[in-house]
């Protein structure tokens, strides 16, 4: 094993994998990468199982000292990444020598995922290596990274004098829905459910891994909150102030606010890329369309996996 040293932690860098399933009845959130497919593909690029843990970075990434060479891959929004000041590209396997790996500003989105050969080998908690920030467990000591942390980063890669990477890359963005400011949702029978789609919303700065808070002309909300009901990742809630919340991976498991519907799973990766202050539009679709889109997304991922397997 190779201990990576965190020189500077970035805005909020966390260890994540595909998240926890089967514990929601005990109030345990899914956690995991906000775009599980992006992390899964990054893992594929370095030859890992898709279930391996990596690092999720947001807005500004960490500086890391690698004591040994490694094989890494970055998938997600564009990161200004470099090794000892040599720039590193997105979407492909990169052999890096020992040295300083710098993950700088994130552009054209908010988040990216870093996979390394062997994965981030922290001890699993409740079947997952993901960090549960609210519960304070999982990942690296149940919290975001801090300067001085030593991370158990999988196995060492092949020796190399300079960063080496192929000329090909993968681009997980769907060319047919390149606009990451549109999220598709299946509305419920709430009076405000269709009104959600009739205006542009702004992403509130108070948004985090629990939820994307939306700011706009208030929707008509009913008085008081109802009794608590189960909620899911992707649930759209309407608090009494009329400003909807899109629940993300760290959201609690039950909630009392009325539900407007849910954003389809294959669009949640795009929701993870919205920056505070950016505008977002919600497009209502029916269940049939939702299932067709989910199927198309699965096919697209399958083609990407195949493309990676053929190149490696």
């Amino acid at each position: 094993m190779s201990r990576w040293e965190v020189l500077s932690p970035g805005v909020q860098t966390t260890v994540q994998d595909q998240g926890r399933t089967g514990w929601r009845h005990l109030g345990v959130a899914r956690a995991g990468a906000l775009d599980p497919s992006a992390l899964a593909l990054a893992n594929r690029l370095v030859g890992n199982a898709e279930s391996c843990a990596g690092l999720e970075i947001v807005l500004q990434g960490p500086r890391l000292r690698l004591p040994r060479p490694s094989l890494i891959a970055l998938v997600g929004a564009h990161v200004q990444a470099s090794w000892n000041d040599l720039p590193l590209p997105m979407g492909r396997p990169i052999h890096v020598p020992a040295g300083e790996l710098k993950l700088g500003a994130v552009r054209d989105g908010a988040r990216a995922w870093l996979a390394m050969t062997g994965g981030m080998d922290v001890a699993p908690t409740l079947g997952s290596r993901s960090t549960d920030l609210r519960g304070g467990f999982g990942g690296h000591e149940g919290r975001a990274l801090r300067a001085g942390d030593l991370l158990p980063a999988g196995s060492a890669g092949a020796a190399t004098a300079q960063p080496r990477f192929p000329t090909w890359w993968i681009d997980p963005d769907d060319p047919w829905t390149v606009d990451r400011h549109v999220l598709r949702y299946v509305p419920l029978h709430h009076a405000a459910a269709s009104a959600l789609g009739t205006q542009r919303w702004r992403v509130h700065p108070n948004s985090n891994r629990q939820g994307l808070r939306l700011d706009g002309a208030p929707l008509e909300a009913q008085d008081g909150s109802g009794i608590s009901e189960p909620v899911a990742v992707g649930t759209l809630q309407l608090p009494p102030d009329g400003q909807p919340i899109l629940l993300l991976a760290d959201a609690q498991t039950v909630g009392g606010y009325p539900r407007l519907g849910h954003v389809i799973a294959c669009d949640l990766g795009r929701a993870a890329q919205l920056r505070p202050g950016e505008s977002v539009h919600f497009e209502p679709i029916d269940l049939r369309q939702a299932r067709a889109l989910a199927l198309g997304y699965q096919h697209r991922l399958a083609r990407l996996r195949l493309a990676i397997a053929q190149r490696l």
């Binding site: 089967g22 608590s228 899911a232």
Partner: peptide, 14 residues
């Protein structure tokens, strides 16, 4: 079946 989440008057089926 992946998870059953009981609440006061409803049951989440994952």
């Amino acid at each position: 079946l992946r998870d059953l989440v009981p609440a006061y008057a409803s049951l989440g089926v994952f």
